[in-house]
Structures are given as C-alpha cells and as structure tokens.
Nucleic acid binder design. Structure first.
Length: 857
RNA sequence: GCGGCUGUGGCGGAAUGGUAGACGCUGCGGACUUAAAAUCCGUUGACCUUAGGUCGUGGGGGUUCAAGUCCCCCCAGCCGCACCA
C-alpha cells in the first residue's frame, strides 16, 4: 500500500523545481509561434480572493496548455498599485500608502506563488513604482503634444466621499462607482483625454474582435452610442436668436408641434427667466433623482416659455417653446423638437399640454382617413403624407430628401452624434501618477515637464491631518520653476485616474527593465496583441474601452502598437457562496457554521442558523472563503481542480465544501491509482507491441479520444468538460486489468496521456506522477501528447432503434454495417417487433453510427 | 422601454437535429473495520406492484422519420443600457 499523498511537501517541491529551472521565463524567439496569455492585473488589497483564484487558474490552464502545444508563452503578473484604498488605509491607520501597498504586494505574491502558476515573475511590475509611471508621464506629454490631452474648465462629476472627480464611466446610477455616494456637479479645471477622437475607430474595431464575448461588444457599442442625424436651426420668433436641435428623424418634421429645451440650456433662462414659476420649475427638475427608479416614475413635465420658433419648412407655422425636464443638456444640442404622432414620449407630453398631434407617416395598407393616433405613437415603417415634398416617400427616402433640403438652404447639417464623452482624468488625490506639467506663475502658461526631468515623483513626506489633496497642501513639493524661463511655477497637483495605469500595463510587461522607453518596438512587434485576455466582465466598458483607446492614441504618438490590444477576451463568471444568518439576522462566516442532522447550526453554541441565498461572495454578507485556508488545507491542485470542474467558466461558480473535498479526493485517487499500479505498467520506453487484445484496443481508443477531446475542450474554454473527460479516462484506466505485456504497454500509454492531459489543471500532481512512473524530464517542458486519428473510431457501435421516433431497443453494429443489415438487425429486436405489431413498416431510416428509425403505420 | 444571457434529476452540469441526464456532488444499500474515518462495490429522473411500459429538458404551437437542440408566440430569472431626441 502506498503512502498517502503529501500535498504540501510535493507541491512545494515542484514549485521550487520550476523556479530553479526558470521554467516559465521567456524571451522573444522568432523561431517559435508566440502566445500572450494575460490575466487582469490585481489591485494589491492584501489578500487574494476566490475570484482571483478562478481568474489565474483559468489563465494558467491556457498558458500551460499553449506551452505544451509548442507556443512561446508569455504569462506575466503585476500590481495595479495606485488608488484610493491605500489612501484610506493611510487615513484610518496612519500608515504611508506606499508602505501599505508594498506590504500588500509582498503578501499577495506569497499567496499567488502558492498556487503554482506558470508565470514569468521576472517581468513583475508594480504601477506605483516611479520606474513605471515615469513612462506613463511621458505618454501623457506625448498625448498633450499630439492634441490628445487637453485642459478645460468643465462641469464634472464630484464624489463627495472620495473628494475627487469621477469619469462618466465611473458614475453608475448617479452614484460613485466605488463610494456609492450621490455624485455632485462641480465646475473645475480638468485634464481630458480625447477618446472621442477615436469614437468611430473604436466602434469599427469592435467588428474585428471576433474572439470577444458578444455581450461585451454590445456594451461597448452602446456606450459609444453613435447615431446619425441632422442638426437643424430654428429661428426664435421676434428675436435674432436661434435654437439648434439634433434629430435622427428629421423626416417627421412636418408633424412637429413643439420644441423642448433642457432646463440648463442657456436659452431657457433667457427666454423664460422673467416668467412666474420659472425658478420653481427649474428647482423641481433638479430635485428629480437620477436613480433608475426615479427616472422610471418621473413624469414628463414642461414649462411654457411663451416664446415661439419658426418651423423651418412650413412658412406660416410657429412652434411653442417649452422647457422639458426630460431633455438632457449633455446629449445632442440640449434641445429637441417634438413630433407627438411618431414618438411615445412626445405624445405623452403633447396630450398633457394639449398640443396638436399630426401624423405624417402611415402604414401602407391603411387609408389616410382611417389612420388616427390615440394613445400610442406610430413608430413603424410606412409612407409619408401631410408632408409636402416628402409625400409618398418611405422613411429612408424622406430622410434623404429633407436632409438635402436643409443643407441646400443652409438650415441644417448632417452630423454624427456620440454618447461617448472625453475621458476626464484629473483626480484630486495623492496616491496616483502626478500629471507632469507646471503652471508658470507670471502668466499661468501650462508648461510640460521636459523628458529629462521625468519622473515627477510623488513626495514621500505627506500628512493626512487635513481634508483634501495632500499634494496641494505639501509645503514645498508644488513650488518649482518653469523649465523654459526659470521663473517661479506651480506643479499640477492633480494626479491621474488610476485607469491610466491599467490602460497600458500589458505593454510594460513586454519590456519591464527598459529604462529609456516604455517598451521597445521589437518587443511589441513580437508579442502584441494579447492572444488571450481573461478577467471579470465588470471591466467591459471601463478598462477594456480605455485600453483600446490607448493603443490607438499611442500609435498616433509614434509608438509601435497594434490597433487592438486584446485579440481574444474571455470573461469569467463570479464566485458565489451560500449565506448564513443567526437568529438575530447577523451574517455568519461559512467557517462559523456546520450542518448537523441536515440542519445548519453555529459551531460554537449549536444555535440554529438560517441558510439563505447563494450570492456573490461579499464581505458584508460574510459568505466568503479565504483562498489561503483552502490552499493550506487542500493544496493548490485541489483548489484549481474544483474551480475548473463544476461550472462552465463563463457562468457563476458556487463554492461548496463538498466540491473542494471531491476535488481533493480525486487527487488522492489519482496518486493512489498510479502508485499502486506501477507493477502493471511496462517498463518505460518499451517499444510498441504489434498486437493488442480487444480490451487493450478499447482502452487505447479511450486514451486517444481523451487526448483529442481534452485539447479541443480547453481551446473552447470548456474546462468543466475537459475535467469530465479526464475523469472518464481515469475510470477506464483504473478498471483495466492487464493480462499480458501488450496490455501493460497500453496501460502505460493511458497513464502517460492522462498525466499530461491534467497537467494544465493540476501541475504539481502531474509532475509528481510523471516522475513516479519513471520520467527524468519534467512536464513543464513536455509537449502535449498526440492522438492517433485511426484509433478514435470504434469497430462496433451501439446505436438506438426507434419506432416512429420512440426508443424501442439498442443494437450493436459493425462500423461499416450497411442499410440492409442494419434494418434486418433492428427489425429482429423483440421490442421493435412489439411496437410494430399490427402495423406496416413503411420506411426504415438508418444513419450509420447514430440511429435506426422504423416508420410504421 | 431597449439589448443580451439563462431555464434540463435532490444539486452543479453533459448531450455535431439521432440511445436525454456524460462527469461529479448528495442520498441509499453493501464490503472492509472491535468501531469510526478513509477506501472499494452496487444503486440513485418521476410514475405504474413486476415482465415491461408510460411520462419527462419553463409553458403553448409548428417544421421533421426524429426536437433539449430549428421556427413562431408566451412565462420566469439574471445582467447591461436608458427621459439618447
């Protein structure tokens, strides 16, 4: 009997071997195909969570598999180390953000190391190192010089809890994405990146991202929000003012019955500011919440300014001008014309304020006199009528015609409107990358810090005793001189949004020791783009859109990068866990409860516990497990196996004790099976026998099917199915009892394949067993096994026999069996005979290897 | 409201239009043991007393020799976007 598998000792041993041999360190090798496999870099919070374990396990399977398949695999790791939590720790505990961050990195690195990941740690990067953000500052200045970064005063999203500005992408339902505080609007001088310059390219690029999830592509498309339309000028009656409207449906112009301005439209106040009730109305608009629920319920209300605009196409028609709470200043021009017959919102508004409803498009099969609009706007296709020169045209023709008329008469222009806004990057925080510009005191000129003075480093000595940005209060840091004139100057005290760092880190990994430039063209040309990127879907628009902007922006500045940074993207599901509450409703940790006689109780006092919903692991609900405990108790391989085996990677994974124990049992079983079965294997390197028994051939078929199947499943990210097939093969191997030397050869072939197949999932165990069965090489350097195509198909197959589509029997036929014989065999079956009794066989359908269906009636 | 995804045993989940439930978890029975753990063997969709059947992939229609899979119409859950002109 073999000794029990000593997980800790064995796993540590193999990690040491990989480390000593630098198994996963790579360099550019033009003779080998490359594969850049990347996991989203973690924020160094101090401890890894199960979501990280899932992310890195998936990445590791791909990396190890690709390596075995002969690719030169780059699989790096680093730390997204700038950001708010470090400053909060500083505030709460008085530790310096840098110290806190580097300690966390050290701790988390230990934890990651214990997972046995095939990472090239020589390329490790921490974004808070000046050696990292130095290059970032250079990029900032390159953007500035190429007109991709600019500074302007603008209304910004101010998070009152984090005391900083947020980008539009970071505001969710009117609340800060991290703090949850209701965002305020403030006017500040801010730095922006001109992401809108690439709006069209970013949109078109989405088409090329064939290996991205459809969901993410849709989200980005919606976020960019392109719409084609026309901007039309309406002259205000009795004034020399005019108002511009954006419309995607200018063809409905003849049905226009009012105009609505945004409450904060400059003309709103000018046209109606003196009117009674104006101030109250504006106040009412502002008090409407921005939450989904508030918008859903918010009634469309308007305020009649009393002013009119001239209809641009109908000389004697004037439209009343309202201020509408539903009109957004941020979108289009902040003014819309209302065509109630063909827009539901306009119809609701028109009914409320008794405005005319004039239909101008009707379905073709209805006569004009029979077509009326009651409480539902008509938005379908049809022909125009009551529309002057557009009469008889369909929607598309009418659009063309009216746009041409506007353009000819100089009343309007075709424009493309985007929802996407430029990316505001200024943050009033200390723990970020300093924006490398100074402002000359004499004239306020904005002067870039010259390259040779980079990096602009953060000062070490800061205090958090007062609210606000410590950089701004620092006694000396911001006082400097103008690099051009030597006059006194003030440094920019805003730092960059931390999404800056994550927008290009995958390029720094390519060349992390390079001091003179962010990365060399040679490295970029060899490794880029990332072949497989893996991470959470929560970055669908933020990080993933910013990175796509970055490659384009860098390219424009002369850097050697492809347009698209990530050729393949995989978004993993969340890790969930059951929740537990005690009698008082207090949340309990999974480690505080146990199941006794089918009921959940508290371990310390046996009191009753309510087991609740299975939800995403969260600290507030305490339904978390600490990966370190798991790695410590069951080892890395068991944790990795469980994470891969239960759920498809794109779906949510429920973490269960039973699941991790099941994985652990399988690992022990494999170890036992091979240790106990060593004497049933032929010696290593025995030549292949010429003859095999039927049972050995069957075993070999299992083996070769698994080799082909597992590879295919890993490539398709069906890791759960790959694990299932590995288990099937192991079942086949463990029940095989060799009776002769050829059998022993077949069994060794199976074991060797098995070990190589599960190596990407359980690399420690795989190395151990590989060595136990006699190899002196290591698996990390061993190629993927090759399958023999001729062994995949069986000589005989068992197929079902249906009568009128219902299963009645199964028969075993030779692989080459023809229709006639199949028919004969099928009809001879007792069950088939019973089913066709008294009926006439009309037809027999035979699909070789699949089915026989007897049609009788 | 718009867009997307999902719906299969007690549970997680498998099924190029062709034997529904692979693989695993749980449960049940048994072996080993003084006993337990571990391990091993058997069994585990529902219903009909059995031979053998019947029913079963959220619901309803349809196409087909054959539908979990394709088409149409619903329902439920999750996610994203949203007064977007």
């Amino acid at each position: 009997m073999s000794e029990r598998y000593n997980i800790k000792e064995t796993e540590t041993k193999w990690r040491k071997v990989w480390e000593d041999r630098k198994s996963f360190e790579v360099s550019e090798d033009p003779d080998k195909p490359k594969s850049y496999v990347l996991a989203m870099l973690p924020y160094p919070s101090g401890r890894i969570h199960v979501g990280h374990v899932r992310n890195y396990t998936l990445t590791d399977v791909v990396a190890r598999y690709k390596k075995a398949k002969g690719f030169n695999v780059l699989n790096p790791m680093g730390w997204d180390a700038l950001g708010l939590p470090a400053e909060n720790a500083a505030l709460e505990r008085g530790v310096h953000p840098a110290d806190w961050t580097y300690e966390n990195i050290a701790q988390m690195k230990e934890q990651l190391l214990s997972m046995g990941l095939a990472i090239d740690w020589s390329r490790e990067v921490a974004t808070c190192d000046a050696s990292y953000y130095k290059h970032e500052q250079k990029m900032f200045l390159d953007f500035y010089k190429n007109d991709l970064a600019y500074r302007k005063e603008s209304v910004v999203n101010w998070d009152p809890v984090e005391n900083t500005v947020l980008a539009n992408e970071q505001v969710v339902d009117g609340k800060g994405w991290r703090s949850g505080a209701t965002v305020e609007r403030r006017k500040l001088h801010q730095w922006f990146f001109k992401i809108t310059e690439f709006a069209d390219e970013l949109l078109e690029g989405i088409e090329t991202l064939e290996r991205w999830p459809e969901k993410v592509r849709t989200m980005q498309t919606n976020w960019i929000g392109k719409s084609r339309g026309v901007r039309v000028r309406f002259d205000v009656v009795g004034s020399d003012q005019s108002i511009e409207c954006f419309s995607t449906r200018p063809d409905t112009m003849f049905g226009a019955s009012f105009m609505a301005l945004a409450p904060d439209h400059p003309l709103s106040k000018e046209l109606a500011g003196e009117k009674k009730g104006f101030d109250e109305f504006i106040k009412q608009c502002q008090s409407t919440g921005t939450s989904e629920a508030a918008i859903e319920k918010a009634e469309k209300i308007g305020f009649d300014t009393g002013a009119f605009v001239q209809h641009p196409l109908i000389p004697d028609k004037k439209l009343p001008v309202f201020i509408g709470n539903f009109v957004l200043m941020d979108y289009g021009t902040g003014a819309v014309f209302g065509c109630p017959a063909h827009d539901q919102r306009d119809l609701d508004f028109a009914r409320k304020y008794n405005l005319p409803v004039t239909p101008v498009i009707k379905p073709e099969n209805i006569a004009a006199e029979d077509f009326t609009i009651t409480d539902e706007a008509y938005t379908g296709p049809g022909k125009h009528y009551q529309s002057g020169f557009m009469n008889g045209m369909n929607v598309e023709e009418a659009k063309q015609a009216v746009i041409k008329k506007f353009e000819d008469e100089g009343k309007g222009v075709t424009i493309t409107n985007y929802r996407l806004r430029d990316w505001g990057v200024s943050r009033q925080r200390y723990w970020g990358c300093p924006i490398p510009v100074v402002y000359r005191e004499s004239d306020g000129a904005c002067i870039p810090v010259p390259d040779d003075q980079l990096p602009v480093e953060l000062p070490k000595d800061i205090d958090y005793d007062a609210p606000g940005n410590p950089l701004d209060r620092h006694p000396t840091w911001k006082y400097t001189t103008c690099p051009e004139t030597g006059e006194p100057a003030i440094r920019e005290t805003d730092t960059c949004d931390t999404f800056f760092e994550s927008s290009w880190y995958f390029l720094r990994y390519l060349d992390p020791k390079n001091e003179s430039e962010a990365f060399s063209s040679a490295a970029s040309n060899y490794w880029m783009p990332v072949d497989q990127y893996i991470g959470g879907v929560e970055h669908a628009v933020l990080h993933l859109l910013y990175s796509r902007f970055f490659t384009r922006a860098l390219k424009k500045c002369g850097y050697s990068v492809p347009d698209e940074p990530f050729a393949g993207l995989f978004t993993q599901g969340m890790v969930t866990h059951q929740t537990y509450q005690d009698a008082d409703g207090k949340w309990l940790l999974p480690t505080e409860v146990e199941q006794k006689d089918g009921k959940w109780v508290k371990i310390d006092d046996g009191s009753a516990v309510t087991a609740g919903a299975v939800t995403k692991m969260s600290k507030s609900k305490k339904n978390v497990v600490d990966p370190e405990d798991i790695l410590d108790t069951y080892g890395a391989d068991a944790a990795r196996l469980f994470i891969l085996s239960d759920s498809p990677p794109e779906r949510d994974l429920e973490w269960t004790e039973g699941g991790i124990e099941g994985a652990w049992r399988f690992i022990n079983k494999l170890h036992r099976m091979i240790n106990d079965g060593l004497d049933q294997l032929c010696p290593i390197d025995t030549p292949q026998p010429k003859e095999f028994s039927d049972s050995a051939m069957e075993l070999r078929r299992h083996t070769h099917q698994a080799i082909a199947g597992v590879a295919e499943k890993i490539e398709d990210f069906h890791m759960n199915k790959a694990v299932a097939q590995i288990r099937e093969l192991s079942n086949a191997l463990s029940s095989f009892k060799p009776a002769n030397d050829a059998d022993k050869w077949a069994l060794r072939e199976g074991y060797e394949a098995l070990i190589r197949l599960f190596n990407p999932m359980m690399p420690h165990l795989a190395e151990e067993l590989w060595s136990i069965i006699g190899h002196i090489t290591i698996l990390a350097d061993t190629s993927w096994p090759e399958h023999d195509e001729s062994l995949l198909a069986a000589d005989e197959v068992t197929i079902g026999v249906q009568v009128n589509g219902k299963m009645r029997a199964t028969i075993t036929l030779g692989a080459a069996c023809d229709q006639k014989e199949a028919e004969k065999t099928a009809l001879a079956q007792e069950g088939v005979q019973r089913a066709i009794e008294g009926k006439q066989v009309r037809k027999v359908i035979y699909v070789p290897g699949r089915i026989v269906n007897v049609v009788a009636g």
